[in-house]
């Protein structure tokens, strides 16, 4: 059974803006799925419709076999949502926020406290359960929203930019937490602007642009489409003059750093052979851009050019 099935989903807002123009998405049960797109592409509208925050104009949404039109309660029972913006009561204690959310799902108070304790402990917030939510730091507020979304043990967890504005240490611990959740069987849909995050966590991906899905495939298959990767090389000694390498073109960034593009028919070994021939020592190298980011930019750019023509 698929965790999510979306067919021909359309949304036209009252002001006439067409946010979704016939979107089809399938997410398999147990998947870690990335839904990417530039700002205003329609990601949040799609997530809003799936989680009942936005009314759709037309189309079909099914979550674990529950149809959104005929069985909205069934759909809602399966979903946990971590929205992009903070949406909890700033004047309520943290423990109560999580317990109340469980109550809305019909979980009696005693059991709700037991589950809230488990969720809050997992996210290092249990000690702060009596604190008002407004006193939390940005990272803690994000973790509170995750704890709240997990308290009814959803089969499908939707994370809309869960790590936005979070420092790198917390971000990495959140990645581990999400991976562990997924390993335990929770299907996860992730939207993020950190493409490194999507590349390392997700197995399948859909890219949405201007209300249309422009790519829907496996992450590894998509990355394989990347024909050229650009590397930044840190050199052992400064270069006075750029040498002419066979098959490669070096571009100077500064005295001791150059960048070079390697296409899918070439190898890094060939590059290093050429550099050795010219006695150029390399102390380290890195991708100039994350691979997914490069692909993403190519797709968005070509879609934009297509629209302009």
């Amino acid at each position: 059974m698929n965790a999510l099935n979306i067919r021909d989903l359309r949304k036209v807002y009252k002001n006439g803006f067409e946010a979704l123009k016939g979107v089809d998405i399938t997410v398999q049960q147990g998947d870690f799925f990335a839904l990417l797109g530039p700002n205003g592409a329609g990601k949040s509208t799609a997530i809003g419709i799936i989680s009942s925050l936005v009314n759709k104009t037309s189309g079909h949404v099914e979550v674990f076999g529950h149809d959104l039109d005929n069985d909205p309660e069934g759909v809602k029972s399966c979903i946990g949502l971590v929205p992009q913006e903070f949406n909890f009561n700033m004047w309520e204690p943290i423990g109560e926020i999580v317990v109340n959310q469980a109550g809305f799902y019909g979980i009696p108070r005693k059991e709700a406290w037991r589950r809230a304790e488990a969720s809050l402990r997992q996210l290092d917030l249990w000690d702060k359960r009596q604190q008002m939510s407004r006193t939390l730091s940005g990272g803690m507020k994000r973790r509170l929203m995750i704890a709240r979304a997990l308290v009814h043990r959803p089969k499908l967890l939707i994370l809309d930019e869960p790590t936005a504005g979070v420092d790198i240490e917390i971000r990495r611990s959140m990645w581990e937490f999400m991976s562990e959740l997924n390993r335990q069987g929770t299907t996860i849909i992730l939207t993020t602007h950190y493409l490194e995050e999507a590349e390392s966590l997700c197995r399948n991906i859909a890219i949405i642009n201007q209300g249309r899905i422009v790519e829907h495939s496996r992450m590894d298959r998509l990355l394989h489409q990347l024909h050229t990767e650009t590397f930044v090389l840190n050199l052992r000694d400064p270069l006075n003059e750029l040498p002419s390498l066979q098959g490669f073109e070096l571009k100077r960034l500064d005295g001791q750093r150059v960048e070079v593009a390697v296409n899918s028919e070439q190898s890094i070994n060939q590059l290093f052979e050429q550099l050795s021939l010219h006695e150029i020592g390399v102390t380290s190298l890195r991708n100039k851009q994350n691979r997914l980011e490069q692909l993403f930019m190519n797709m968005v750019e070509s879609a934009r050019n297509g629209a302009a023509q």
Partner: peptide, 18 residues
């Protein structure tokens, strides 16, 4: 209104509460 203003009305909308 406060639940709308702070957006925590969304907690109810996404839940299976009639």
């Amino acid at each position: 209104f406060s639940s709308k203003f702070q957006r925590h009305v969304e907690e109810l909308i996404i839940s299976p509460v009639p």
